[in-house]
Amino acid sequence: MSDFPIPSAPKSRYRRAVESDLFYTFKRSPVAMVSAAVVLILVLAAVFAPLIAPTNPFDPSSLNLMNGFTPPMAPNAFTGDTFLLGTDDQGRDVFSTILYGMRISLFVGVAAVFLAMVLGITLGLISGYVGGWTETIIMRTADVQLTFPSILVAMLIFGIAKGVTPVEYRDQMAIWVLILAIGLSDWVQFARVVRGATLVEKNKEYVQAARLIGRTPGAIMLRHILPNVLSPVLVIATISLALAIIAEATLSFLGVGAPPTQPSLGTLIRIGQGFLFSGEWWILLFPAVTLLALALSVNLLGDWLRDALNPRLR
């Protein structure tokens, strides 16, 4: 017909990723690349902890109390064993406890953010698309929850959940209760952002075109609007991950989080701070530095994502 044809094949998924603006800005941001590398190393270390860790710190049979309080990189006075980052009072290898602790921290963080995300996206989509009283109820609830610090909300939920769990299951359930508490304290942000983006998208003509052919509100929300509101969600999810890891560490530090049988980084820091003034600094320092590196690099990655996906926020 009229157009001179310039037929070109559609691009593959890989080509589209490599040619995307996101990948381009990533390659030009040293901060993003270093953060991504740190996150990647830490995540891999956590996932493959059983393969990397020299000992399993939670297997009582592998522990030797004589190894307690060994300083980093120095042979133990009694056994002659050397530990990369030293040992704690029980003789557990600090390096190994960090690897296993990071697993718990990351698992709780990711799961909590996932919970918050699913909850927030669902409520945000519904309140943005449906509007009216539904919206009022959801968003006022969110406003009320926002007036409390989220750590307080998490502690409240944690307390209630712990109260209703039978004593014998408490330690087993502690991790799940922790995820529930942090997830429920964090959905508001997702809901707000998704609602805002939904309000913009639902008035666009492609949504009207879908309504016109009689698609149901559910299909429109899921198939049409959801894919278009995901990029701000991705940004918030990343930044929330850093906050969730810190929230988990805070709760565990306060002693209401992960039990000593399944210590997270926060639990390790709580244990370590008891030994700070008696000179065994390594028990505190190394878990703390790991937590800092993890939270900071996830956060920086989130900052970069925000700038890259939404230049107007800069």
Partner: peptide, 15 residues
């Protein structure tokens, strides 16, 4: 019944 809209940039789902 079908409809064609004004803004060709907003009437196609970008995803």
């Amino acid at each position: 019944i079908q409809m064609i809209f004004q803004d060709p940039y907003a009437s196609l789902n970008p995803r």
